[in-house]
Amino acid sequence: MRLYRLRFLCGDARRRSLEIGLKFGLQVTSIGNGHDFLAVEGRIVFIFTQVDGLSHDTLAEIIFHEGALKSFISKIEMNGIAVCRTSGDGRESVTISCPVGNLQFTFTQCSDHCCQCLKSPVSEKYIQVDHITVAVDPGTSTSVLEWFEKCLNFKRFRINSVETDEGLSMFTADTGLNLLALQYRHCSEVGLQCPLTSEDSCDVKFVIAEPLSGSGPNQVATFLQQHRGPGVQHIGLLTTNIFKAMDQLRTTGVDFIQPPTEYYELVSKLQDIESVGESVRGLQTRGILLDTGADAEKNSSNQRRYLMQSFTKPLFDQDTFFIEIIQRCGATGFGTGNIKALWEALALHMERISTAV
């Protein structure tokens, strides 16, 4: 099973596809009857579908190529899952709804011609979709996790070594988040390093993000409010050179969130950056975050594993969907250490502002 396409439902699909295509360097073409627009760069494939009168744009469908579709359908029907079958354009498809708002999953068995996109050369800018994060209502992450395991053959993996059975919970004085992560069971025994050359390996991970009940405002709670319910909060695009990717994306008009100066002044963060040989100035001028948080996997080598990441501002009219650019230098997590570091930096930033006043 491989990720094939992501479908966005939009009130103005043409405008949205051209806007995203221009900013992220995707080639945009109109397909079908003019209600769908395809945006492609290497193995990154987005579809923007026109829905008149839609109140807010949303990533509503995740499409996988499944080579053994009949067997897959039999398995999910045995679990009592209702499926919707379609065929056309040289492929068969089956769609199922999931307990994450309006999100649907489609599994298609492509013809040889359609499957050429799965073998497309890797883009110089992005390798692939690294992960998809869904925001869910408080108290529902466990049931969503169980659905992924039962229906899609995904399996939970530990984000880092301090995670509990309930997930990775993070708190400040007034807010809290809980995270759970999953990957396809086929590659679960070998961690996140699924071979890109294998046509049968699912190489995208899912993160379930839940605001803890009773906590104050945070990015997940804001998404749930603005999106009017659960859904895909963001996707991570994997790159081999985040510095080059960021420079290119800024020149095409992508707006990134700029971390407060205090983030790059934290002693713990300065130590992390120095320990892996990266440049504080190079990171700060581009707004790149760096995390060396402990992975759940044991590191057999002495090499320090880390990741670097940056987040765009919301790409739609509401404060909902955004894109993360991520470079993995051996790390398998999702930069959870940066969440805590940003909370600490923001607290210092607000303290300085109040002191100045």
Rank of each mutant, 00 (worst) to 15 (best):
M1W: 00
S213N: 10
L237V: 07
E66S: 07
R305N: 08
S268P: 00
F256D: 11
A245K: 01
D203T: 09
G229W: 06
F8R: 10
F64H: 05
S301H: 05
T355L: 08
K205L: 14
K119Y: 05
K23S: 12
V204Y: 10
G191E: 07
D174K: 13
F37T: 06
R305W: 04
D36Y: 01
G335D: 10
A345S: 13
S198I: 01
L196D: 12
S300Q: 12
E61Y: 02
T197F: 09
T164F: 02
G253N: 02
T175R: 15
R5I: 01
I73G: 02
G176L: 07
I273S: 09
D255N: 07
A296H: 13
N302A: 11
P211F: 11
G330P: 03
N33G: 15
V280H: 06
K205Y: 04
S97T: 14
A294R: 13
T140K: 14
T172R: 02
I62V: 15
L6D: 05
A173D: 12
I339M: 08
D295G: 08
G191Y: 05
F105M: 11
V134G: 05
G335Y: 10
C202N: 10
R352H: 15
C10E: 05
S17F: 05
S74V: 00
I47L: 14
T292D: 09
C329N: 14
T86S: 15
T133Y: 01
V357R: 14
G293L: 03
G293S: 13
I20C: 04
Q271S: 09
D247Q: 13
T142D: 08
R156Q: 14
C194I: 01
A68Q: 15
I325H: 10
I44L: 11
K23D: 01
D112H: 02
I326F: 09
G90L: 01
K23W: 06
L212V: 13
L237P: 07
G214N: 08
R304F: 00
F206M: 07
F148K: 03
V134H: 05
